[in-house]
Write a protein that binds this DNA or RNA. Structure first.
Length: 213
DNA sequence: CGCCAGGGCCATA
DNA sequence: TATGGCCATGGC
């Protein structure tokens, strides 16, 4: 890991501790949550998940009628697209017999292409599923990561693809490390750096402040 | 009230 | 390929 990235990571880790992160109980719940949280507050996703009554499984989603699925996930917004996307994602999972280990034996690049081919799944959602659901070393470059790159002097580029390859080429290819790093970025963003100006108790405050951000 | 939240698709030019 | 409108709810 480069010096600058190491400093960033260490500061976040010292301040927040090991996050070991994604608030979900199962692999499939992570997959579904990744879709439901697209441009949507996590509190709304929780409401949608709660509407499954603890029965958020691929078998359940396959069995649920499309119209009823819309109604269940309504609190997460954009429910027409997301319901179709959930169905497509579940069909994809069914191709592997809902078997996590079988998915993990496939080449990551191929899985990513398959996910990106599904309507409603783009780069951020695909990477979240690969990393947080299945434990592949695919770095997630989401809105929080882009915002951090705009503030912290990494010179990582401006778009999702550039930022993703920036981190992946400079961090050891380790899924747990990717997990911690991105989780820390999100936790920091939620806790301190939601918008300008940064608050003084943000562990990145001095560096960002020096840049006038 | 208006803004925005852990995006992505689609229509334009 | 690069923008911009759109989806849609709930919290603030």
């Amino acid at each position: 890991m480069t010096e600058r990235l190491n400093i960033l990571y260490s500061r976040l880790l010292d301040h927040y501790g090991d996050p070991r992160w994604w608030p979900a109980g199962s692999v499939y719940e992570v997959m579904a949550g990744a879709v439901l949280t697209q441009n949507t507050a996590w509190t709304n996703v929780q409401k949608a998940i709660a509407n499954f009554g603890g029965g958020l499984s691929p078998q359940a989603v396959e069995a649920i009628d499309g119209e009823r699925l819309k109604d269940i996930i309504r609190p997460a917004g954009s429910f027409t697209r997301k319901s179709l996307c959930l169905k497509a994602l579940t069909d994809w999972y069914a191709c592997y017999g809902y078997d996590d280990e079988r998915v993990r034996r496939q080449p990551m690049a191929r899985l990513r292409d398959e996910l990106l081919a599904l309507k409603g799944i783009g780069p951020e959602t695909a990477d979240s599923i690969l990393l947080y659901a299945f434990g592949f070393p695919s770095f997630v470059a989401d809105a929080y990561t882009l915002r951090l790159c705009g503030r912290y002097p990494l010179d990582a580029g401006g778009d999702v693809h550039a930022v993703k390859s920036f981190f992946e080429s400079r961090i050891p290819r380790d899924a747990l490390l990717y997990n911690r790093f991105h989780a820390l970025i999100v936790i920091n963003a939620k806790a301190h750096c939601r918008k300008k100006p940064l608050c003084a108790d943000c562990p990145l405050y001095d560096t960002c402040e020096r840049r006038g951000l």
